[in-house]
C-alpha cells in the first residue's frame, strides 16, 4: 500500500474547445486526474490526444482560440481555472512551472542564460539585485552545469541541447514550485542526454517534494519515470493507473494497442502491432461518447452511451463500456 500523499493538483472534468474556421473543436472532454506531492504523473498518448492542451489549460496559457468550457483545476485550495489572469501570472513561475520541448527555442536567444535565471529569481524567488547573479550561478551549479560562472554568460546558441534543457530546468525550479509540468522535455535530445535530464528532474522532485506532470508520447519513458500513467486519446482520458498495473494489466483496448505498438528490448518487428485507424474528427457535435469506438475491435451497442471514467480496481480507472 502506497503511503497517502497530499494532492498538489486535482483536475476535475476539464473541458476545452477551440474555435476554428472549420467549427468548434472539442479538444478536451471532462478530463480529470490528481498528482500528489513528490509524485510523477505521465500523460501519454498520440499527437493530437490533448496532452499538451491539458497542461496549457491548467497553466492558463491557452491560445486565444481556445476556451475552457468546464471543469476545475485545484492547486491546493485555489481553482486555477477561476483565477483572474493577473493572479495567475503570480502563480505561474512561482507555484507551477513548465519545461517545454525544444529548449533552445524556448529560451530567449538574445539574453545570457544566467540573466534569464536571474529574471525568474527576481520576480518569483525573492532575490535582490545584489544577489540575483550569485543565486543564478548557484542554480546552474545545482543542475550540474560545469563551470557555472562562465556558462552564466553564455547565450543559448553557445550551449548544447542537453545543456539548454538544464538551463530550462534551472529556470523552472528556481522559485521552488509545487508543480512542474514537463512537456516532452527530452524530445530531440540524445538518449544519453535524455537519461541525465530525466535523472535531474527526478532528483529535483525528490529533493523538494515537487509534483511532476510528464507529458510524453514515449510509453517506455513514462514506464521508467512515472509513478502513475494516464493514457489520453482524442481529448478523453481513457485509462489511469499506477505504472506497473497499467503496463501489466491494461483494461482499455487503446492502452493495450499502444503497448503492443511500442518496441521493446526483446520483441521482434513481427510481434509489434500498429494501432488501426486514426483520431476521429473532433469538430462534430458534443461527442460525449467513446471517441475510440471507430478504431475499436471490441465495440458494441453499449458504446453509444455517454462515456465516463469508472473504477476498474482500487486506484485503476478506465473509460470503456467493454474493457479487457
Amino acid at each position: 500500500m502506497m503511503a497517502p500523499t497530499t494532492d498538489v493538483l486535482r483536475v476535475e472534468d476539464l473541458s476545452v474547445a477551440f474555435q476554428t474556421r472549420g467549427g468548434l473543436v472539442r479538444a478536451l472532454d471532462r478530463v480529470g486526474f490528481t498528482v500528489g506531492a513528490g509524485q510523477t504523473m505521465a500523460l501519454v498518448g498520440e499527437s493530437g490526444s490533448g496532452k499538451s492542451v491539458t497542461a496549457y489549460a491548467v497553466m492558463g496559457l491557452l491560445e486565444t482560440a481556445g476556451r475552457v468550457t468546464g471543469g476545475r483545476a485545484f492547486l491546493g485550495q485555489t481553482d486555477l481555472l477561476a483565477t483572474p489572469p493577473r493572479t495567475m501570472a503570480r502563480i505561474r513561475g512561482r507555484r507551477i512551472a513548465m519545461i517545454f520541448q525544444n529548449p533552445r527555442a524556448a529560451l530567449n536567444p538574445i539574453r545570457a542564460v544566467g540573466k534569464q535565471i536571474a529574471d525568474v529569481l527576481l520576480r518569483h524567488g525573492g532575490a535582490t539585485r545584489s544577489n540575483a547573479r550569485d543565486r543564478a550561478i548557484e542554480a546552474l551549479r545545482a543542475v550540474g552545469i560545469p563551470d557555472p560562472a562562465r556558462r552564466a554568460k553564455a547565450y543559448p546558441f553557445e550551449l548544447s541541447g542537453g545543456m539548454c534543457q538544464r538551463v530550462m530546468i534551472a529556470i523552472a525550479v528556481a522559485a521552488r514550485p509545487d508543480l512542474l509540468i514537463a512537456d516532452e522535455p527530452t524530445t530531440g535530445l540524445d538518449v544519453t542526454t535524455q537519461a541525465v535530464v530525466m535523472d535531474l528532474i527526478g532528483a529535483m522532485a525528490r529533493g523538494s517534494g515537487m509534483a511532476t506532470i510528464l507529458i510524453t508520447h514515449d510509453l517506455a519513458l513514462a514506464a521508467e519515470r512515472a509513478n502513475r500513467i494516464a493514457v489520453m486519446h482524442a481529448g478523453h482520458m481513457v485509462e489511469e493507473a499506477d505504472t506497473a498495473t497499467l503496463l501489466a494489466r491494461p483494461r482499455h483496448p487503446y492502452t493495450a494497442r499502444l503497448i503492443a505498438a511500442t518496441p521493446t528490448a526483446a520483441g521482434s518487428l513481427a510481434s509489434l502491432q500498429s494501432v488501426p485507424g486514426g483520431l476521429p474528427d473532433l469538430r462534430q457535435a458534443d461527442r460525449l461518447h467513446c471517441r475510440y469506438a471507430g478504431r475499436c475491435e471490441r465495440r458494441q451497442d453499449a458504446c453509444d452511451a455517454v462515456l465516463t471514467m469508472r473504477p476498474a480496481a482500487p486506484g485503476h480507472a478506465v473509460a470503456c463500456w467493454n474493457p479487457l
Binding site: P146, S160, V191, T192, A195, D199, L219, A220, R225, A266
Partner: peptide, 23 residues
C-alpha cells in the same frame, strides 16, 4: 554499454551501466 543502458525500456530492468555525464 552506456548508450544501451540509457534507452528507456517498457519491459524488464535496464542493464546496469554508468550514466554518461558531460559532453
Amino acid at each position: 554499454r552506456s548508450l544501451v543502458a540509457a534507452v528507456p525500456r517498457l519491459d524488464g530492468p535496464r542493464p546496469d551501466a554508468p550514466r554518461l555525464v558531460g559532453d
